[in-house]
């Protein structure tokens, strides 16, 4: 079923993933870039680095239960993301929409899509060209926190802005 070229691509991603994940794990997150490599993380002190975007700007925002409206905190983070993206035009963004486990599987895919799109629309409203922003929903398939109470659910109801080097335009 799996073709050899795909295995090779997967292997490459795993290698690239290995270095980025260990750094991310220090931040208590484990989002994996499935569709492409993020490139070098760099240092958080370098404002043009991916690490700076993730740790200083903040790569994620959180949602209320079964909602896709952006809280004030979320809007502040996304405004900073928009500024960063406009200053760093080499990067494109994939917005991941996620849901907590308290919902049925397919509904949560749709809910995650709604959330990812809310983030995308906000970034566009702050000047980021829509051509640079894609969305994907993982529904409840990729939790970062695994307990079954609100302290974890609130971390899982999230929109994550994953940077990609914008080679594909």
């Amino acid at each position: 079923m799996m073709t050899f070229p795909k295995l090779a691509v997967l292997g490459l991603l795993l290698v690239l993933g290995a270095c980025s994940r260990s750094a991310l794990d220090d931040q208590g997150t484990n989002d994996v870039t499935l569709g492409g490599a993020t490139g070098a993380l760099g240092s958080p002190s370098d404002p043009t680095s991916v690490a700076h975007f993730q740790q200083v700007v903040g790569d994620r925002i959180f949602f209320q239960v079964d909602q896709s409206t952006l809280t004030q905190d979320a809007q502040a983070t996304l405004s900073a993301q928009a500024n960063w993206l406009m200053a760093n035009a080499d990067y494109n963004a994939v917005i991941e929409g996620h849901a907590d486990e308290q919902g049925t599987r397919e509904y949560n895919v749709a809910l995650g899509a709604r959330r990812a799109n809310a983030v995308r629309e906000f970034l566009i409203s702050r000047g980021v060209p829509g051509s640079r922003i894609e969305t994907v929903s993982y529904g409840k398939e990729r939790p970062v926190a695994v307990c079954s109470d609100e302290s974890c659910y609130s971390q899982n109801r999230r929109g994550v802005t994953v940077l990609r080097v914008g080679l594909t335009g």
Partner: peptide, 9 residues
Amino acid sequence: YSLEQGGNT
């Protein structure tokens, strides 16, 4: 099936 476009399913 469900099709999502622009956040709407």
